[in-house]
Computed example of a mutant assay.
Amino acid sequence: MNYFIDYLNQLAPLPHESAIAINQITIHKTIPKHTLLLRNGDVCKEFHFLESGIARVFYYKDGKEVTAWFASENQIVSAIDSLFTGQPSLYNIEILEDSVIWSLQYNKIEPVFEKYSGVERLGRLLITNNYLLLDERMKLFAFCTAEERYERLLLQIPDILQKVKLGQIASYLGISQEHLSRIRARK
């Protein structure tokens, strides 16, 4: 089988036939760093599960890159709004280090959902997990200081400082790089 199937089995055991169906539509890829999986203006047609590596989702505002999200090992990265609506995405998805991913095209998973109810349940679990991560991010901005957001990021991705540029981390935290440097100096 594959690493993605193993991950899904941890969420909810998959019957053998379902696992085979998912395995047949899953594409295993090694992606070099700085690869864009999605460009602003393109329609997102697949989601990616990171076996190893790190990716970021970003957009442009006033000519500057703004990092909206980081995805690391055992997480899914996609432009979900574009994936579900078929509308062009406002986001870019960039691989930040050489990564191993498992990709699924949305139009190929739908028939598997229809045929295997357990797979549809797993799809809901994955969407729920991603929604909870998004909710956590919103709460961080609503209730936490920049220093608390930084600490939480280090808990979620302990080696992020070795993998990601400080400017991208500062952007994700909603602070300037100088402010991030001051926070790091206090640690």
Score class of each variant (00 low, 15 high):
63 G>S: 12
105 Q>K: 14
107 N>Y: 15
110 E>K: 15
110 E>D: 07
61 K>Q: 11
133 L>H: 13
93 I>M: 10
72 S>N: 13
49 F>V: 01
81 D>M: 10
50 L>C: 01
98 D>F: 01
134 L>N: 06
122 L>E: 02
108 K>P: 10
118 G>V: 10
133 L>R: 14
118 G>N: 12
99 S>V: 01
131 Y>F: 15
49 F>N: 03
106 Y>I: 11
116 Y>C: 06
126 L>S: 06
96 L>F: 00
82 S>I: 06
93 I>T: 09
49 F>I: 03
137 R>C: 04
44 C>Q: 08
56 R>N: 02
131 Y>R: 11
44 C>S: 10
71 A>Y: 08
68 A>I: 12
63 G>R: 13
117 S>C: 09
78 S>N: 03
82 S>D: 12
126 L>I: 13
97 E>T: 01
80 I>E: 04
99 S>P: 04
123 G>H: 08
111 P>D: 09
112 V>H: 04
129 N>Y: 14
52 S>I: 01
44 C>A: 11
71 A>P: 09
133 L>Q: 14
103 S>D: 00
107 N>V: 14
70 F>L: 12
51 E>L: 01
74 N>K: 09
117 S>T: 12
85 T>D: 13
74 N>I: 01
80 I>V: 05
51 E>I: 00
48 H>M: 04
73 E>T: 05
137 R>W: 08
89 S>C: 07
117 S>N: 10
60 Y>G: 03
70 F>M: 11
110 E>W: 12
90 L>P: 02
78 S>P: 00
80 I>M: 06
46 E>M: 10
73 E>D: 09
55 A>P: 03
120 E>L: 10
122 L>D: 00
124 R>N: 11
86 G>L: 05
128 T>R: 15
115 K>A: 15
95 I>L: 05
97 E>H: 00
80 I>Q: 06
45 K>Y: 12
46 E>G: 10
44 C>H: 08
71 A>L: 08
68 A>M: 11
121 R>I: 00
123 G>E: 07
100 V>A: 06
45 K>W: 09
129 N>A: 15
83 L>E: 07
83 L>N: 06
93 I>A: 09
109 I>F: 09
